[in-house]
């Protein structure tokens, strides 16, 4: 009980600090915080599907890019909130369309299929843009960073609550059962197809909105960058480092990578990606449950 009260108090303080951040931080630090929140939201959304089901998706970049594309197409033609929701629904709809065939395969086939579909969709957008004789889309009059920060904070909180709530729900138990043994889960009456598709669709909504917010930050849409598979790889890296089975994992993973990048990119631009690579391998080998899993283990051990 005491631990629970401390945890809740800690979360309340953290949230209060996040809300007050734009008043306390300079413009650059606010930019870093915005980036951190975007990665938390993206990684949480990945964990709600891949972390719980064990279906490793390398396709989240497509939902992120699609959200950015919807924003670039509709900017200033509708209210901001409508476009943001539209971007999220576009991601979810795409997940529904590709989810049914994609989720019929599993393991490495699913990984390759999601990556392939993501790349396929990127080139469709490139071809559509070429057909429209568009050459990149500039966004003028984007909201200020403070506004974008609060939207991103809301997304990070919603995504975290989603992971937390889902992991504790009957659905979460069903998804975990799929991860452990899909055939056994189905035999026991878990509606595996429905659960997998529902989780995939839910997990695609958040990246759609994050992409839409991020393109307002960069003020320029160019498909090669915004549909880049690097986004998917980074999400998976953060989930592995933070731990992909519980809500604090993506927060630790995103914070670790973003802050480490901030420390290194200006000081050691040529070696920082190498350092990240070494860290990733080290985490996979020595801390397979990620930072959050390791912390939980240490706390359990202390209590025992």
């Amino acid at each position: 009980m005491k631990t629970r009260i401390f945890s809740l108090a800690g979360i309340a303080v953290l949230l209060a600090l996040c809300i007050a951040a734009p008043q306390m931080l300079d413009a650059y630090s606010l930019g870093v915080a915005l980036q951190l929140l975007s990665w938390i939201a993206l990684t949480q959304s990945w964990v709600t599907f891949s972390g719980l089901t064990g279906y490793v998706s390398l396709g989240h970049a497509v939902f992120y890019g699609l959200g950015a594309y919807v924003m670039a197409l509709l900017w200033q033609s509708a209210p901001l909130w409508e476009i943001l929701l539209g971007s999220g629904f576009a991601g979810a709809l795409l997940a529904l369309v590709i989810g049914y065939p994609a989720l019929r395969v599993s393991g490495p086939y699913f990984v390759i299929l999601t990556l392939g579909l993501s790349e396929f969709f990127k080139y469709i957008v490139i071809a559509v843009e070429a057909g429209l004789e568009s050459s990149g889309r500039l966004i003028f009059g984007a909201p200020d960073p403070e506004t974008l920060y609060y939207i991103m904070l809301l997304l990070a909180v919603v995504a975290t609550l989603l992971t937390w709530g889902l992991a504790r729900s009957r659905w979460g138990a069903g998804l975990r059962a799929i991860r452990e043994d899909e055939t056994a889960a189905e035999t026991l009456g878990v509606p595996v197809t429905f659960l997998k598709i529902a989780a995939f669709v839910i997990s695609a909504f958040i990246p759609g909105v994050v992409g839409a917010v991020w393109v307002l930050r960069t003020t320029y849409f160019e498909p090669m960058q915004l549909f880049s598979p690097t986004t998917s790889f980074t999400i998976v890296t953060m989930a592995i480092i933070g731990g992909s089975d519980r809500a604090p994992g993506p927060i630790f993973g995103a914070a670790f990578i973003v802050l480490l990048s901030e420390l290194l990119w200006a000081r050691a631009p040529h070696v920082y990606l190498v350092i990240l690579g070494v860290l990733l391998v080290s985490f996979v080998l020595f801390v397979p449950k990620g930072i959050s899993g390791q912390l939980a283990w240490l706390m359990r051990r202390r209590r025992a």
């Binding site: 300079d26 413009a27 650059y28 930019g31 991020w214 930050r217 960069t218 320029y220 960058q225 915004l226």
Partner: peptide
Amino acid sequence: DFTKDAAIYEKLITD
């Protein structure tokens, strides 16, 4: 990565 440029130029100006 041009998506990093806004943050970099913000850092140059403000930090």
